[in-house]
């Protein structure tokens, strides 16, 4: 068991190391492949030293915390509205029909396309960025919740009715737990999309934040810092999704035990 796990971790570390080595070779040789060139790509070593410098700088905390605040706010609102609306739509055919047209129309609009209107609509750029993050997270959460509610076994609903379940109890004891695995999936996906929407918004409207830092580094020609920003975005996106997944597994012990 432990040996198996060790093997997996070695494999993962190995693939990461190979990526780093290829990057090092390509950028130190200033490789030019015609369509893509590594001439301006900084060396991994430079990136590491830029990262260390950024970690020590006073601006680090301001960038990170403003990004985190925006994601938490946008994602949090999306989670509340997405799950709430999803439960209602999944349970009520009438409301589902009623809301389907506007939701289907809004769904394919990418977060970037929202930026101009968001800037016009909201009184502060902070709010408009939170809104962009919100739009990114809303649909994965909403759609997965609806799907989860609709896929609750009708036999369980019937048997709960036979056992004397009230309407409220049906929602709390049967529908929500039944839809919970799908809701968690929606939250994990929504968390990822809210990160990349946030970064897009910050590049255009921000003053602080990891996305803004990345874009600012480009305009100031601090090339290693671009990559520091990118890696930070990746790490935070990955970390927050992993946290959600772990929280989901802890909250749904029956689900994980069932499937393993």
């Amino acid at each position: 068991m432990t040996r198996f796990h060790l093997g997996r971790w070695l494999r993962r570390a190995g693939s990461l190391a190979i990526c780093l080595i290829l990057w090092q070779i390509a950028s130190s040789l200033r490789l030019n492949l015609g369509i893509v060139t590594f001439e301006n790509v900084p060396l991994p070593v430079d990136v590491v030293s830029a990262a260390l410098e950024f970690l020590r700088s006073p601006k680090f905390f301001a960038h990170i915390s403003s990004s985190l605040e925006r994601v938490l706010a946008g994602f949090g609102i999306a989670a509340v509205i997405g799950i709430g609306l999803g439960l209602v739509i999944g349970r009520s055919r009438w409301l589902g029909d009623f809301l389907q047209a506007p939701l289907e129309l809004l769904r394919p609009i990418p977060a970037v396309a929202w930026i101009p209107l968001a800037v016009l609509m909201f009184s502060s750029s902070e709010l408009s960025m939170i809104f962009i993050t919100f739009t990114g997270a809303l649909f994965p959460i909403l759609l997965n919740t609806v799907h989860g509610v609709e896929s609750v076994d009708p036999r369980l609903i019937a048997s709960a009715r036979s056992l004397g379940s009230t309407r409220t109890a049906m929602l709390l004891e049967v529908i929500i737990p039944g839809a919970a695995p799908n809701i968690v999936t929606g939250l994990v996906i929504g968390m990822g999309t809210s990160w990349f929407c946030l970064v897009t918004a910050e590049m255009i409207a921000g003053q602080f934040g990891i996305g803004y830092y990345t874009w600012e580094s480009y305009t100031l020609q601090n090339y290693p810092e671009i990559i520091v920003g990118m890696i930070l975005i990746g790490l935070f996106g990955m970390g927050s999704s992993a946290l959600l997944r772990a929280a989901g597994a802890a909250l749904l012990p029956w689900h994980t035990k069932d499937s393993k």
Partner: peptide, 9 residues
Amino acid sequence: HHTLFPWKN
């Protein structure tokens, strides 16, 4: 086929 709630012990 049982209709027990999978999320309840």
